[in-house]
Every structure is written in C-alpha cells, then in structure tokens.
Amino acid sequence: MKKNNIKKILAAILITTFFCGKAFSASKDLLKIDWSFAGITGKFERDSLQRGYQVYKEVCSSCHSMKYLSYRNLGQKGGPEFTLEEVKAIAASYDVEDGPNSEGEMYERAGRPSDHFVNPYPNDNAAIAANGGAYPPDMSVLVKARPGGANYIYSILMGYEEKPVGFVLDEGVYYNKYMDGNKIKMMSPLSDNLIEYTDGTNATQAQMAKDVTTFLTWAAEPHLEARHRTGTKVIIYLILLATLVYFSMKRIWSRVDAEK
C-alpha cells in the first residue's frame, strides 16, 4: 500500500520537475560563467566590483540610471567597499540638484555620499527621446528583472554578431544573438581596451562584461553575502533543533508504544 503511494508521489514530482525545468530554462542557451556569487556559499570579488563600477561609470552611466543606489552604498560591507574618502570623492565628482534656496531657486552642489546616483536624463521621456525611441532601462535591479539574471546580462554584452544574410534591421537597430527577437537598440557598448582599469587589469571585452555584470548583480542584491551567511547559520540551527526535537518526540511517544 505505502510503496504504491510513494511510487506515485515520485512520479508526480518527476513529471512536475521535468516540466518546471523546461519552463524555467526558457530562453536560448545563454553564455554561462562560473560566477563567484553563485551557489550557497557565493560571495562577490571586491576588485571585480570596483572594476565593474568603473565600467558603469565610464561607459554605461551616460545613458543608464541606477536611481535606487546611493553613493554611500559603494562603501558599505558586502559591496565594492570603497573607502570613505573614495566614496566622498566619487560623490563629489557629480553635480546634484538641490533647493529651493531661500530665494526660491534650485541650485547645483557637489554630491554627497547620501545622495542617490545622479540620473543621466532629467526624466524618462528625455531618456527615450535621446535614444531613438528606446528607453535605456534603469539598472538598479536589472539583473533580477531578466530571466537568466547575470548570465543573461553577460550574454547580451557578448552577444553582438554580424546579422545573418537576409535578416532585416532598421536604422539604429543592431543584431544580438541573445536578445528576444535578436534585435536590440543599443549598439555594442563594450570593446577591448575601451577603458583603462585603474587596477591595471587587462580590459578585454569579456573582462569588462564580467566585471560590470558582477557589479550589477551586487547593485540588485546588495545583501547577498549577508543573506548567504545568515542562511547557512539558520539551516544548521534548524537541523540541530530538529534533531533534538526528533529525539524528544521519540522519547515522549515511547510511553504510548510501551502501553500496548
């Protein structure tokens, strides 16, 4: 009786997971990297995060905002962990609108760590108009907003190719192997030696793609490391407590079995 049921449960689970697996691995085979932050013990590499921020700042930030991040985040634990001085300098390198002052006027001042990342455009419509009708998405949570996450972002950055013969592309549209429909309105943003890394790392396209993707993953999940650390402790604790409770349960129930 019981064995039969178990067989049926297993069959149900197998069928479900097969279909779930199919559903989740939806998009075309993405490029996959062995990310340092993947898996239950995943962590970010500090220098990769700092390089990634440099890529964002020098390449992406001219079009892409990251409005849910503040400059102070760049210094907090679990992230790029720039020093307080570095964070202040980064913030101060931006002009932030403030006001109104006592005359009723808005004015510009140097950025502070508490300020949010400055937007490249005053509003979404300006962003769309400046980019041929396409909105460059805000990247604060972009990695979580795309199926495939970090692998997807990396694949897009590395996925620009010559369009196949006969493939129709409008003006200002580019061919990308991993984009849905293969059309993307952003031209390939990265190429070898586009920027010079301050830490001296060779700035190949793949390196920059990896670093900026790592940075974007942190930006979307700044507490990832704390989450993994706490999770490990919680599950070990639960297993410990469950063991104690299990033996307590056996001890208590032994009274019932003894009565027979």
Binding site: L244, V245, R251
Partner: peptide
C-alpha cells in the same frame, strides 16, 4: 537533558 536542551536551543 534532552528536553532541557531542546527548550534552550528553541
């Protein structure tokens, strides 16, 4: 001991 340990850990 078992019960005390369970309560404490809990």
């Amino acid at each position: 001991f078992l019960f005390t340990a369970s309560y404490t850990v809990g």
